[in-house]
Design a protein around this nucleic acid. Structure first.
Lengths: 127, 127
DNA sequence: CCGGATCCTGGTCGATACTG
DNA sequence: CAGTATCGACCAGGATCCGG
C-alpha cells in the first residue's frame, strides 16, 4: 500500500493535470514506439530513413513532427551532418532513455493482461 | 539489461501493435484519471455524479463514454440499482485495480522528470 | 439521476507535391 | 536524403436537448 502513495496523492493536487499533459503528449500515435525503437537500436542512434523503415506505415510528415516533439521534450537529440546528400541522426538522450524503465512495466502489464482484456471485450460485445 | 527484455522484443512481433492499441484506448483524455480516482475511493466504488464532481471539467457525455469503454475492457463493473431516482455505481474490477501498479511507476517517473521536461521545452522554444 | 441522440468544432493524421 | 507546405478526411470530445 505504501508503494501506491504517489497515485493517491496525484488527484489531490494539480499533479493530475501534469499526468494528463504528459499522456497527451507521449500518448500519441507514434511517440512511444519511436522511443522504444531508438532504445533497442545499437548505440541508441538512427538516421531519419532508418526510423521511417522501422516504424512501419508512418508518413514522412508524422515522423518529422513526432521527432520534433520528442526533441522539444528533451527525449531525443538531433544531429545534422553537413554533407551531400544530407544526413541527420537522432539519438536518445539520458532523459529519453530513462523512459524505458516505466514503459517496461507497462509493456509487461499489457503482456500479462491483454488476453483478459480481449475476453472482456468479447463478452461485452455479445450484448 | 535483463530487465528490459520485453521492450526489446516488443518491436519484433505484432506486440507493438498491441501496445499501440492499448495506449490509444487508455491514453485518451480521461481514462487514466478515472481509474486512479476509483482506485483511491474507499471501497473502489463511486456513483456517476460523484465521479463527475471528482473529474473536474468532464462533460456528462465523456464521462458516460469513458465509463463504457472501461467497462468493455473489463476495468470497471457497472451496477444499476432499480430505484427512483436511479442510482448507478461503478466499481474497479480486479483487472482494473492491477493497472494501478504500472501507472504508479509512470507517475513516479513523471514526478521525477517533469521539471527536466519543462526545462528542455523552454530552451528549445528559445530558437 | 443517469445517459442516449444530435450537432458542431478543433485537432490529428495521411497523401501528395515540392525544395535545399 | 530529409525535410516543408498544403489539403482534406476523420474523430475525439464539448454543448445541448430530451427521455426513462
Amino acid at each position: 500500500m505504501n508503494q501506491r502513495r504517489a497515485v493517491y496523492l496525484m488527484c489531490k493536487s494539480e499533479e493530475s493535470s501534469v499526468v494528463r499533459q504528459f499522456l497527451a503528449r507521449i500518448g500519441d500515435k507514434w511517440s512511444v514506439l519511436l522511443v522504444v525503437i531508438l532504445a533497442r537500436t545499437p548505440g541508441h542512434r538512427a538516421r531519419f530513413s532508418e526510423l521511417q523503415r522501422a516504424l512501419d506505415g508512418i508518413s514522412q510528415r508524422m515522423l518529422t513532427t513526432t521527432l520534433r516533439n520528442l526533441e522539444r521534450d528533451g527525449f531525443v537529440r538531433r544531429e545534422v551532418f553537413p554533407e551531400v546528400p544530407p544526413r541527420v541522426e537522432y539519438e536518445l538522450t539520458r532523459l529519453g532513455h530513462s523512459l524505458i524503465d516505466p514503459m517496461e512495466h507497462l509493456v509487461q502489464w499489457i503482456g500479462t493482461h491483454w488476453s483478459s482484456i480481449k475476453k472482456a471485450r468479447a463478452s461485452f460485445d455479445d450484448r
